[in-house]
Structures are given as C-alpha cells and as structure tokens.
C-alpha cells in the first residue's frame, strides 16, 4: 500500500518563480506553458496494515515532528492510498520542443522529480518506529504543468521536453544523470 503526502508553501514559492522565468523568458515556453506549480511529494510504502490505522499513525507523526512539513510555513494534504498512480518515467526520446503555435487544448501534467537513490533511509528508520510496516520512503519535487497541446501524446512530449535537461537550451526541471522524472498523471485541464 502507498500513502502520499503533498506539501506546499503558504508563501511565495521563489523556486517556482525562478523556474517560471527561466522557462518562459529564456527557453521559449511562454505560449505553451500556461501555468506552473510546485510541491513536495512524500511517498510512504507500507508492507501491511489497514489504511485507516496507518493514516492515523501517519497523521500523528506529522503532528509530532517537523521532518515532513512545518505547519508554520507549509500546508499539507495526506492523499488517499492509490490516489496517485505509480506513473511512468519521462523519456528523452519522447521530448518535444515548444511548437511555434500552442495546441488547442489545455493539459495538466504531474511530474515527480526524485534523486537517484533518493530513498530517505535515515528518516524512514526513525519514522518506522511509529509507523509499523513502513518499508520505503521517498521524497521529491512535484511539478504541476499546465500545457497547451492538441493531443495527449503531444502534451506528454512537451512535459518531457520541458522537464528533462538534454542540452543547454533544452529542458530544465531535472538532470537525468542523477534524477528521475515520472509522469504521474496527464489529464485534460480546465482554463483557470
């Protein structure tokens, strides 16, 4: 079973601001990228136990420690087990550069960037004392992209193109030599 915790800043997110400027002003994504949001996603892998008990135990742990989020600056959402799919790795082969004209539809893509070997072993061991059955714990940056594309395939290609750094002028959000980007969800979106 998997429980996931999404943590967002309550204040201005300067990393998001800088990424937005780099993507839209330096890399030419202004017409394609409609919006960009950033969060941290924690993924708790649990080997046994019923969801309600584990959620309660995790909620207590979040209350007790600021290792996962700090209520003074962040808000959090504890997602239901299986709310987010495993996702699939973004592949450089699929990557598209922004086309001259943006597509007609809006797509929302959730891209999760984790460091290679990014299992948070020390934290897992400490948390496991209070969260029985915890077998894995990973954290990474969750980017929510709103993209203008005609088809889902194109949207997926744009997400890969924007996220995976391949060359000096191509891609920004992760360096594939030590990070992994997973496309968790891709769905048609509403205009804001």
């Amino acid at each position: 079973m998997r429980l996931e915790l999404r943590v967002e800043l309550k204040t201005v997110d300067l990393v998001r601001e800088t990424a937005w400027l780099a993507l839209t002003e330096k890399l030419g994504w202004a017409a394609v990228l409609a919006d960009l949001r950033r969060a941290v996603l924690w993924r708790f892998e649990l080997s046994d136990g019923d969801e309600a008990t584990l959620r309660a135990a995790l909620a207590a742990e979040l209350e007790r420690t600021s290792a996962f989020y700090n209520p003074n600056k962040e808000r959090h959402h504890l997602l239901a087990g299986g709310a987010l799919p495993e996702g699939e790795p973004l592949a450089a082969a699929d990557a598209l550069e922004p086309p001259p004209a943006p597509g007609a539809r809006l797509w929302r893509a959730l891209v999760w960037v984790t460091d290679e070997g990014g299992e948070q072993a020390a934290l897992r061991r400490r948390t496991a004392r209070r969260l029985p059955g915890l077998s894995g714990l990973r954290a990474g940056t969750l980017w929510e992209l709103a993209l203008r594309a005609d088809t889902a395939t194109m949207a997926r290609g744009l997400a890969a193109g924007l996220a995976l750094t391949r060359r000096r002028r191509q891609g920004l959000l992760l360096n594939p030599h030590y990070q992994e980007g997973r496309l968790l969800t891709l769905a048609p979106g509403e205009e804001a």
Binding site: D115, E116, G117, G118, E119, Q120, A121, A122, A139
Partner: peptide, 9 residues
C-alpha cells in the same frame, strides 16, 4: 547496528 547513513538527497 552501528552503521552510519549515507545521505543521498
């Protein structure tokens, strides 16, 4: 077991 963490992230 006395080992130290090797942090990745």
């Amino acid at each position: 077991d006395g080992a130290r963490e090797v942090a990745d992230a």
